[in-house]
Simulated assay, not measured.
Amino acid sequence: MPGATPPRWLDLLKSLPLYALPHHTVSRAVHAMARMETRLKDPLVRWFIRRYGVDMGEAAEPRPEAYASFNAFFTRALRPDARPLDADPGALPSPADSTVSALGRITHGRIIQAKGHDYSVETLLGGDGRRAAPFRDGHFITLYLSPRDYHRVHMPAAGLLRETVYIPGRLFSVAPHTVRTIPNLFARNERVACLFDTDRGPLASIMVGAINVGSIELVWTGEVTPPRGDLTVTDYGDRALRLERGAEMGRFNLGSTVILLLPDIPFAWREDLAPGVRVKVGERLGKFEG
């Protein structure tokens, strides 16, 4: 469970310098360095494993020196048996190794970010009321991926990909202190929203970028890097791609946050879930009722 919340003034002190940073310039530099194929990355990878307590015993390739670049290590695959999927077809499994940031009901199209902060579903999904309407009074969960986490994102339900929306924005850190202090954080940062049709109705999985996240990858397109500043909508129509429950959907190249949206249907979150609780891919988050 989470420890005591730091004083608000300390959160503000840590967050204020982020406003002045050239987010995309910093992230492009990190993007390039993380992909350099050199033996010089080996000491960095070993330090990172020690510093963040990364369990390489779960990795498909446990040898740090076997990865061509730091990014290859960071986006490493796990052993097939490392993340068992909840066997109950009525369960909603976690799409990511992560820490719960917030969860609950969406109220009149507003999502809780943190105490004293909320933001709109419509803005989160790119400003289209039609796209946001199915989730107006639905359910949401926000999941924060820390540096130590496995950074591939999986499907919480089988579904047909209907639409993707790339929304340009800033790249503020999404660490807990910024979530508590920067208004509309997730609706301001660069993000990719993926909208699916499932047997339980529409589902949205939003991958939110952050400082040092040079790109977000989707399994069906590779890196999502449209021209900076252009909102890009891809309607799959008759080309709808089906992804199975538990299948890999995408990955973060460093960082970030996943937000799941469900419509107003009978559904209950796990009773012990709360901000600060850690979950792993495939672990039950809640259950569809009926």
Rank of each mutant, 00 (worst) to 15 (best):
D264A: 15
G290P: 08
P275T: 02
R76N: 01
S146G: 10
R130G: 14
M249G: 00
Y67W: 05
M36S: 06
K280W: 02
P176G: 08
T225Y: 01
H117Q: 15
P168H: 01
T123P: 03
P227N: 07
A247F: 13
S215N: 07
H24G: 14
L195D: 00
P84G: 01
G237N: 03
A210Q: 12
D81K: 08
L243W: 13
L231G: 01
A82D: 04
F74C: 12
H108M: 13
L44D: 05
H117V: 07
L18I: 05
G290I: 07
T123E: 14
L40D: 06
T99H: 01
G57H: 11
V279K: 04
P89G: 12
P95R: 10
V213G: 04
L125T: 06
P156Q: 10
P17I: 03
H23A: 09
M33S: 10
P7S: 12
T221W: 05
L44Q: 10
P22V: 03
P147H: 07
R76S: 02
G53K: 10
G276N: 02
P156L: 11
G129H: 09
V121Q: 04
L12P: 03
A114S: 14
I182V: 15
A60D: 09
E244N: 13
L16I: 13
G90Y: 11
P43R: 12
M36L: 15
L195P: 00
W220T: 11
V179H: 08
F135E: 03
R188D: 10
A68H: 04
E244W: 11
P22I: 01
V277P: 00
V219E: 08
T123Y: 02
V100A: 04
L125N: 06
T225D: 12
A247M: 09
R239M: 08
A114Y: 08
S101G: 12
A72N: 03
V174S: 06
P22F: 00
D149Y: 05
A29K: 05
A82F: 05
W47C: 12
D230M: 11
V213M: 14
N189G: 11
R79G: 00
C194M: 15
V277C: 04
D264R: 05
S146Y: 04
L185Q: 06
G290T: 10
G104V: 03
S94A: 14
A210I: 13
P95Q: 08
G250L: 09
G90T: 10
M155L: 15
R228I: 05
F135Q: 02
A66H: 01
G286I: 14
V208C: 10
G246T: 02
F48A: 08
L92D: 04
M155R: 07
H117S: 12
V258E: 04
I216D: 02
L143A: 08
P22S: 09
F140G: 07
L12Q: 14
E190T: 14
T5C: 15
G255L: 12
